[in-house]
């Protein structure tokens, strides 16, 4: 993973930024240690892989949300967009019987297109991101049901499809650690997103927009275009998430997806990205997503009642954000 905060800044906040990531990271480590001590089943290879598998979809969605949140926006449509992309893949592969690579391409293109639409509504029509993506969330939820005929689309005719998430390229080389491909995809997406944020103009404008949009506009930058681009990239990442979930379930489930945006946003926030924009990291988001799934898995392994699992997750979210506030106060 590469450094994804503002690169090369040598001043105080960056050190504390690193500190915060350290904090989130130590939080993750602490969780792992506690659960390992509490249950011998927790650190089994199979369970660790289960945790990573459970992180993959939410992690990818959270990365998409991270990009948008750094611009100072919000994307509530990531969950249903993922579903929509999965359904499109289902149509291409199962209903139309086209080859696998076209299905993959279709999912990513569908995501990009929907992101373009959201971005355009936000940038050109000046509809606030919360409302625009809330609308998109519902539109895509409905369209998924319409296109799929309200029934899951199965991928039984495309034998290789479930290998995208469930197969293990690593396992074929090192049979002892059969890391599912879905996890590799997550890390690949994270790496690419971190790279885009730190090394490309798109990444620079992502931070700049969240920091002071008016200043960017006054600097002669075509703000609308870049904003649309950010939503489009986030959309394409949702397309990847769509592939992952469809592959994992070997089906496109059209009713699924609503509610997933909140888990994604929770991961982003736990990872130290500011909801008011301007700062955030992909690594942080990844750690945030891992904290959520380690917590869920660990509590299940310990047979904690489900009601209490929810309470604990809520507490952790508030604690993580409070830690961030403390950090800023001591800046």
């Amino acid at each position: 993973m590469t450094e994804t905060a503002i690169p090369a800044a040598k001043s105080g906040p960056r050190i504390s930024g690193a500190f915060h990531r350290l904090l989130a990271f130590s939080g993750l480590i602490a969780l792992v240690v506690v659960f390992s001590l509490a249950s011998p089943n927790f650190m089994q290879t199979q369970n660790v892989l289960a945790i990573l598998q459970a992180t993959s979809v939410n992690g990818v969605l959270a990365i998409a949300a991270t990009l948008v949140i750094i611009t100072g926006g919000i994307d509530l449509s990531v969950g249903t967009l993922m579903t929509f992309c999965a359904v499109i893949t289902g149509v291409v592969l199962t209903n139309l019987g086209l080859p696998l690579p076209l299905g993959i391409l279709a999912s990513i293109l569908a995501g990009t297109f929907c992101g373009l639409v959201s971005g355009t509504i936000i940038a050109k029509l000046k509809v606030p991101p919360f409302i625009a993506t809330l609308g998109m969330m519902l539109i895509l939820k409905g369209l998924s049901l319409v296109i799929s005929g309200t029934k899951p689309i199965y991928f039984n005719d495309t034998p290789g499809f479930n290998q995208i998430a469930l197969g293990s390229a690593v396992g074929s080389v090192f049979p002892a650690v059969p890391v599912p491909n879905g996890v590799l995809v997550l890390f690949l997406v994270a790496g690419l997103a971190a790279f885009v944020l730190s090394k490309t103009a798109l990444g620079r404008y992502t931070f700049a927009l969240g920091s002071n949009e008016e200043a960017v506009r006054l600097s002669g930058v075509n703000v609308d275009r870049w904003k649309i681009a950010v939503y489009a990239v986030a959309g394409s990442i949702c397309g990847v998430a769509g592939l992952l979930i469809a592959s994992r379930l070997n089906s496109a489930q059209p009713a699924l997806g609503q509610g997933y945006e909140l888990d994604a946003i929770a991961a982003v926030v736990i990872g130290g990205t500011s909801l008011s924009g301007g700062r955030g990291t992909v690594v942080g988001t990844l750690i945030g997503a891992l904290i959520i799934s380690v917590l869920a898995n660990g509590l299940r392994i310990l047979s904690v009642a489900q009601e209490w699992q929810t309470v604990v997750t809520g507490c952790i979210i508030i604690l993580a954000v409070y830690a961030d506030i403390l950090r800023r106060r001591t800046l």
Binding site: I6, A8, A9, K199, T200, A201, G203, R204, Y205, F207, A208, G210, S211, N212, E214, A215, V216, L218, S219, G220, V221, G278, R279
Partner: peptide, 24 residues
């Protein structure tokens, strides 16, 4: 009209970042 989260250099050249190929 500055972007507080960016560095001085990034602020000064916002919109005209020197690039190598498509990278900053």
């Amino acid at each position: 009209a500055l972007m507080r989260d960016l560095t001085a250099a990034q602020n000064i050249f916002i919109g005209r970042e020197p690039r190598k190929a498509f990278l900053l």
